[in-house]
């Protein structure tokens, strides 16, 4: 397979992830969309590592995965705290900082 095929797939998954982030109304759905976008980035990194013969992309992907774990853990904890305080996880109603 060519590099372009992998990059196209990653672009498609990334765009679908963005669509999901923009359309979801609950905060957990938004986090799921962000996961999708992270994975598209990882596909790109691994594909570049393979087609440029440079293992650095794989190391970067490992870092991305570790950072994603931290992001999801903190994000879900924040969502649970928000639910405890506001009794909703609907993102549109969390507008305390709105002017």
């Amino acid at each position: 397979m060519s590099l372009t095929a992998y990059l196209t797939l990653a672009a498609l998954v990334f765009a679908i992830g963005l669509f999901g982030v923009l359309t979801r109304r609950n905060a957990i759905g938004i986090l799921l969309g962000i996961e999708l976008m992270f994975n598209a980035v990882n596909i790109n990194l691994v594909a570049f590592a393979r087609f440029h013969g440079d293992l650095l992309g794989l190391v970067f992907t490992l870092f991305t995965i570790a950072i994603t774990v931290a992001e999801v853990a903190v994000g879900l904890a924040i969502v649970i705290v928000i639910f405890r305080v506001r009794r909703t996880v609907e993102a549109d109603r969390l507008d305390l900082l709105r002017g």
């Binding site: 060519s2 590099l3 196209t8 963005l18």
Partner: peptide
Amino acid sequence: AGALLFVQLIFVVGRDRGGGGADVSP
């Protein structure tokens, strides 16, 4: 918005990257 992003990304992907396209099998 998603479609626009996809088209933009495809435009970038489709451009000539100047080498690196071949499967070099590291």
